[in-house]
């Protein structure tokens, strides 16, 4: 209804220019590089090159799906328990969950290494108890553990946020109508917290599937994930094109899974820190 002057929409122009230059243009460059060779000529060779990375893709998807699932299994009850604590305590618990999130990913991953290393904390304890050594670094389990450890807070936070917004009268009404604790959880809380679950899954899945640091450190170089492959391609200018193609495929993969995810929840509100 109100008339807006041109002058004030102009405030958004620097941002729009910035976006076009540094968000849209770079993505177009990914597209360009993906379909050209190092000399700049059009080629589909990079598509065929994907074939040699098939096992990497499969492994990455498998590990990140399992990691996301584990985060959900661990994180959902955690969020639920916290959301039912008394409000003062809720703040403290969430602070405790968030603190590792504010600590750099490299440090968190590195601290995992300090635990799992052959000469690390865990083996030190085992040795002290005369239980022999376990070799963890370099196994897929270690990478999985690292993903869950690093990204669990990203699952808890959005689910907690949504649960916290659920009108307590709804759950009260449900128990008033005779629903027991379990039924309140499954019939009221769970459906209402779906949007949080969707954001949580997104926030864990995306960094898991694209990580390269976790696999480098905890995987010990014994196998590669997509992130590692992309990182390796960009060490050398001659393989930029293949790297761009792999990135493009990963992006499309993520977009598809996000679209599928969003179908599962009607309200796809974004819940972010």
């Amino acid at each position: 209804m109100r008339k807006r002057s041109l002058l004030s929409t102009a405030a958004a122009y620097p941002h729009i220019v910035w976006m076009v230059l540094f968000i849209v243009a770079p993505l177009l460059f990914v597209l360009y590089y993906a379909f050209t060779d190092p000399s700049g000529a059009f080629t589909l060779e990079n598509v065929t090159a994907l074939g040699s990375h098939k096992t990497t893709f499969v492994l990455s998807i498998a590990l990140s799906v399992i990691a996301t699932f584990l985060c959900f299994i661990i994180g959902y009850p955690l969020a639920w328990i916290i959301s039912r604590a008394d409000p003062g305590r809720q703040r403290i618990y969430m602070m405790l969950i968030m603190l590792p999130m504010w600590t750099n990913l490299l440090i968190r991953t590195y601290s995992m290494m300090a635990i799992m290393d052959d000469g690390g904390f865990l083996n030190g304890i085992l040795a002290a108890l005369h239980l022999g050594k376990v070799h963890l670094i370099g196994t897929k389990g270690a990478v999985l553990f690292g993903m869950v450890y690093d990204f669990l807070p990203y699952m808890v936070l959005p689910i907690y946020t949504v649960m916290n917004k659920i009108d307590p009268r709804l759950t009260e009404a449900a128990s008033d109508l005779g629903a027991g604790g379990w039924r309140v959880l499954t019939k009221v809380t769970m459906p209402l917290s779906m949007s949080g679950v969707v954001s949580g899954i997104t926030m864990v899945f995306v960094p898991s599937i694209s990580t390269f640091y976790i696999s480098q450190k905890l995987g010990g170089g014994s196998f590669e994930l997509i992130g590692d492959t992309i990182e390796r391609q960009f060490q050398n200018e001659t393989t930029y094109n293949v790297g761009a193609m792999i990135s493009l495929v990963m992006m499309v993969l993520i977009l598809i899974s996000l679209a599928v995810m969003n179908k599962f929840s009607d309200e796809s509100e974004e819940i972010l820190p």
């Binding site: 770079p26 990914v30 995306v206 599937i209 694209s210 390269f212 790297g243 761009a244 990135s247 992006m251």
Partner: peptide
Amino acid sequence: PMMNPDIVTGISMMLL
């Protein structure tokens, strides 16, 4: 950039 994996944001800008 918030939704995209950081690695993609990183390499896309690097290419530019």
